[in-house]
Structure formats: C-alpha cells, structure tokens
C-alpha cells in the first residue's frame, strides 16, 4: 500500500468512530425505564378505574400531541373540558389534571424522558409538582 501510514490512521479514526457507541456502553445491558403509576391520587381510585385519560397504548405514543391539543384548545379556543373516547370528562390542564394523578414527575415523566433524551420545555413556565426527594 502507498502512504500506508496516513491511510491506516484514517481507517483507525473511522473504526474508532463507528465503534464508539459499543465501547461507551461497555457491553453492559442498561436498565430500562419503569414509570411508576402508584401515586396517592391514582391509588385512591377503584382498582378498575385506574386508567389514564385515554388508553395506555395511545398515551404512550401520543401524550405530547394530546397536551399540545389541550394547550391550543384552552389558550386559543377557551374550551376547557375534554371528553375522552370513553365519555369521561376532564378539565384540560397540565398542572391540575395530568400532574394531579402523575404527581411523581421524577419517577414517571422523567423516567422515560431521561432515557430517550427528551427535555420538554414546558417546565420553564409550568410548575413542577412538589415531590419528596427520593
């Protein structure tokens, strides 16, 4: 090979870059997030009533879309009552509805968000529920 030294340095940089994630994680399995839904507010509900606003599978993927819609409906359309698909009515509010049930932000919202590096900017203004440090 001609100019072998330089070409091999280049190839080593390339291999180093693609191998980086494998080295960084060190081959250890990582803990997966485990959002807890055992807040006092939720435990107060009857066993078969312990449900989210919408079905769990929907909430998992679409909760930010729902929140965005809620925000628009409240702030722009002055519409504060949300009728869920099962007919239940909820006051559309981030702090007073979502965070009332999910008062354990650190063990719930953050659990998933830290894992997937999502940083909702909502808490720049909205008040984070008070939690005991754990």
């Amino acid at each position: 090979m001609y100019n072998a030294g330089k070409i091999i340095i280049g190839l080593l940089i390339f291999v180093g870059l693609v191998a980086f994630p494998f080295v960084y994680s060190g081959g250890k399995a990582t803990a997966k997030p485990d959002p807890k839904v055992d807040t006092p507010e939720i435990l107060k509900l009857a066993e078969n009533e312990r449900k989210c606003v919408e079905p769990k599978a929907y909430m998992k993927g679409e909760h930010m879309v729902l929140l965005n819609d809620w925000r628009d409906w409240v702030v722009r359309d002055d519409n504060t009552i949300y009728t869920a698909t099962d007919g239940k009515k909820y006051t559309m509010s981030l702090q007073n509805t979502c965070m009332k049930c999910h008062s354990n932000k650190k063990k719930f919202c953050d659990e998933c968000h830290n894992y997937t590096a999502v940083k909702p900017y909502c808490w720049d203004c909205h008040i984070v529920p008070k939690e005991k440090e754990t």
Partner: peptide, 15 residues
C-alpha cells in the same frame, strides 16, 4: 414506542 425502540437499539449495542 420510542422507549421500546431504544431498548432494541441498546440491545444491539450491548450485543
């Protein structure tokens, strides 16, 4: 499910 996807990708990374 992005959380599930990250489990898959981290599984790949950690062999």
């Amino acid at each position: 499910d992005v959380v599930g996807i990250k489990q898959l990708t981290m599984g790949l990374i950690t062999f």
